[in-house]
């Protein structure tokens, strides 16, 4: 038999193709298992019972696929069946927390170290949670300074799987005139989350419930008043704020004319990640005196005297800095 280049090339190509297809199927399989575990954990965390039906509904699996996943999870001793209810075993919980840890760390990374839009965080983290290796995860956590909460206010499980109880109660349960601090902004479903992002609601932010209407809440945030439907408000959790916080209109750095001075009272919560960190590193913290020095030829940016140095900031940044 004579050696033929064509046949050799064809068999290499076919081999590669088969390998790719098998590898893809294997990875898709792992994703199914991990997503199911994650869902079961979330049910447990929020104290909702979970059945085969709710699993297939929540994850969009067909009934047969869901049944196959459940039987495999049972075989691997990740879950047990109590009647029709699915319960995590301790090893199942441990596995789920590992996946959740990656997901939330990655969201933290996207929020702190990139300019990826809020509504894209979840999708990107969904992809990352299945592919990051354990060493990469510890390295990521170290680089981010071992963060405790993800940008939605969900706790990031420790490497040992430790996790605290849920913080806060749904926003619509507060009374009129209550001043609250947001602890959690749910990122699913995306359409509701997009509305929350558009309103600029982030964990850590103070709100005042101005009024409760039949199907919406009137909210005041950093001086801006707006209405949000109850169904949207249900995706925000908050705790009452003990310290006196002003949610009324605030003067910003952008209002200073050259020669005027002001004292910083804080930075808007809409300013996060690198943007926020660098402003603070420049010395823009509560109590700092800041004076406008001059504007550029076109009127923007403006140079400010901050702790002895002269730093130019753009208008959209100066609008994020509140003055007393």
């Amino acid at each position: 038999m004579t050696f033929s280049w064509e046949i050799a090339a064809l068999s290499v190509a076919a081999g590669t193709l088969i390998f790719l297809v098998l590898n893809r199927r294997r990875r898709r399989h792992i994703e199914l298992i991990e997503d199911a575990l994650k869902h079961l954990y979330n049910c447990e965390y929020t104290k909702v019972s979970c059945t085969l039906e709710s699993l297939s509904g929540a994850l969009g699996y067909g009934r047969e696929q869901a049944a196959a996943v459940v039987s495999e999870l049972t075989r691997s001793k990740f879950i047990t069946l109590e009647g029709s209810e699915l319960k995590l075993t301790s090893s199942g919980r441990e596995y789920a927390l590992k996946v959740i840890r990656v997901h939330r760390l990655w969201e933290r990374h996207l929020a702190d170290e990139t300019m990826v839009q809020e509504v894209d965080w979840h999708k990107q983290a969904e992809a990352k949670e299945h592919s990051l290796k354990q060493e990469q995860v510890s390295e990521l956590s170290r680089r981010l300074g071992h963060p405790v909460y993800d940008p939605h206010g969900d706790p990031i499980p420790g490497a040992d799987g430790s996790i605290p109880a849920v913080r806060g109660i749904p926003l619509q349960t507060f009374n009129k005139n209550a001043v609250v601090t947001i602890t959690h902004v749910e990122d699913e479903p995306t359409s509701v989350y997009a509305q929350l992002v558009q309103r600029g609601l982030y964990p850590g932010m103070n709100l005042r419930v101005l009024d409760k209407l039949s199907d919406s809440l009137v909210i005041q945030k950093e001086g801006i008043v707006f209405e949000i439907p109850l169904i949207v408000a249900a995706n925000v959790r908050a705790v009452p704020e003990q310290r006196k916080k002003d949610t009324g209109p605030q003067k910003t750095l952008a209002t200073l004319r050259p020669g005027e001075e002001g004292i910083v009272s804080g930075i808007s919560h809409g300013c996060r990640g690198l943007q926020r960190r660098r402003l603070m590193d420049l010395g823009i913290v509560p109590g700092t005196t800041v004076g406008a020095v001059m504007t550029s030829v076109s009127g923007d940016p403006t140079a400010y005297r901050i702790r002895g140095g002269v730093i130019a900031l753009r208008k959209e940044q100066a609008e994020m800095v509140f003055l007393q």
Binding site: T114, Q275, I311
Partner: peptide, 14 residues
């Protein structure tokens, strides 16, 4: 480059 981190500041030294 949409997703890359971004920040503006410009020091005007004496």
């Amino acid at each position: 480059l949409k997703g890359e981190a971004s920040f503006f500041s410009l020091e005007l030294p004496p």
